[in-house]
């Protein structure tokens, strides 16, 4: 599973992230990237992708573009990261300027905003599906399950601020993973080669 993917071309990297950027409404970008990068193209493993999501979410910037940089960097270094970022922004940049020119007409269209809420709801559905798929792969024992539920409850239900929550949860979760990895440390190291 943990194999460095064969060299992904910058062009295909650009194409994937251009498409994700252009068709992303209502914040459904990270699951879309997940689908393209992990499910369809198998450029990286699920763990690798998800840990990147957690890592980049605690850093400033937009989650989706941060994730794009993470993926691009993993696959092709600086060139890959720049390509992914540029590709993510090309479509929205043009779309937002076009919309700004026509916005009075656009917002005046009856039902336009209602339709956009539906699009956003579908994007959230994508997010839910990615959560379920990822949880099935990631949560193999009780401790990660508890960590996942606690994080969800803290941020989602009790609406605690994301950064402090991650700063508390991450060390605990990583410490547990460290101890769990102890007996099969050799196997893990082998896997990585």
């Amino acid at each position: 599973m943990e194999t460095v993917p064969s060299r992904v071309s910058l062009l295909s990297l650009y194409r994937v992230f251009f498409e994700v950027g252009l068709f992303s409404f209502g914040g459904g970008l990270v699951p879309w990237i997940h689908r393209e990068v992990v499910d369809v193209r198998k450029w990286m493993s699920n763990e690798e992708f998800l840990s990147g999501v957690a890592l980049t979410q605690v850093m400033p910037g937009v989650n989706s573009t941060n994730t794009a940089i993470y993926v691009g960097q993993r696959l092709r270094g600086l060139a890959g990261a720049s390509t992914a970022l540029l590709a993510m922004l090309t479509g929205p940049f043009c779309a937002v300027l076009l919309a700004a020119v026509f916005y009075q007409q656009l917002l005046g269209l009856p039902g336009f905003q209602a339709a956009m809420v539906g699009v956003a709801a579908a994007a959230i559905g994508m997010l839910l599906r990615m959560g379920i798929v990822s949880a099935r792969v990631t949560v193999k024992s009780l401790p990660p399950l508890l960590m996942m539920i606690a994080t969800f409850a803290a941020v989602g239900i009790f609406r605690l601020p994301l950064i402090p929550v991650v700063c508390v949860m991450a060390p605990i979760s990583v410490a547990i993973a460290w101890f769990l990895s102890a007996p099969k440390a050799a196997a893990v190291a082998e896997d990585a080669e």
Binding site: S51, V53, A54, G131, M147, F152, V155, V174, I176
Partner: peptide
Amino acid sequence: NGLAPIGCG
């Protein structure tokens, strides 16, 4: 492995 479940949550 520790960060993945947090990303999931």
